[in-house]
Write a protein that binds this DNA or RNA. Structure first.
Lengths: 132, 132
DNA sequence: CGGGTTTCGTTAACAAGTGCATGAAATCGG
DNA sequence: CCGATTTCATGCACTTGTTAACGAAACCCG
């Protein structure tokens, strides 16, 4: 995913940080354990990644109402801005890829990958490493 | 690729080292630059990975006949043994995956991925990160 | 209630890779 | 022969995966 990685580098975010941002964008405010599950990260990694994102002001944590062991992680406005900006960029790259590789095949491929990912998650087997 | 990673850990090889081993297995004796290209690694990474593999006695270097800047990297007998052993293991894991996910879909998926990889290589776009 | 157990996030420490800049040797071309 | 180029190696900063241990909070049950 070279081009995507380059884009992220420019934005000052690592791949995993971006992964977490996307998960948060999809899920809305979440607790760390859920994020780790969805982003296929171990908690120690997530801790570090969240620390980084927080330092950049892209996410913020708000205390959980009833459970003081955990908390909510949510995207800040700056974070949403970054998402908006780079989802565009990401789509541009995807379009280019589509151009070269063919829309129809790409769709089939992504469908299959999604099925595989779903299936693997169910049985706890594979873990996705990278996505567009 | 959790199960594969576990298998490799048991064999005392990292993912990237295994990647290099596979490339060598396919290509036969090669020079570092070609390996780096095929394994999608930068030379600095490859240098270190080769150092590791050499230390484990899985690969060996033989001097190039005419160009003393470079050399040939080849798999040792121990290396081939490891490949043989874990290609079996790998196939077992693959079979399991096939079981869960369905032979036919898996074939389609791998076909598409191969096309995509070929296409990307041609235009220098994407780089594969991991494979079964 | 109260003590053991479980859950949850954090920290520390180590191994491994990445990317970049740089270095050093060998080769090539004029 | 000399400078440019090629090819691999190194050092450094940074990120991540992994494991183990920890501390706090919540839960459960006698």
């Amino acid at each position: 995913m070279v081009p995507i990685r380059a884009m992220l580098a420019e934005a000052g975010v690592t791949e995993q940080q971006w992964r977490v941002m996307r998960v948060l964008h999809e899920r809305g405010p979440s607790d760390p354990a859920s994020i780790a599950r969805d982003a296929c990260l171990l908690m120690p990694s997530l801790t570090r990644i969240l620390r980084g994102l927080e330092a950049k002001g892209l996410v913020a944590r708000t205390p959980h109402e009833s459970d003081r062991r955990t908390f909510w992680v949510r995207i800040t406005e700056a974070g949403e801005a970054l998402i908006a900006a780079h989802l565009d960029e990401s789509n541009r790259i995807l379009a280019e890829l589509e151009d070269r590789y063919g829309r129809e095949r790409l769709d089939r491929l992504l469908d299959l990958l999604e099925e595989l990912a779903a299936d693997s998650a169910r049985s706890g087997g594979l873990a996705p490493r990278e996505d567009v």
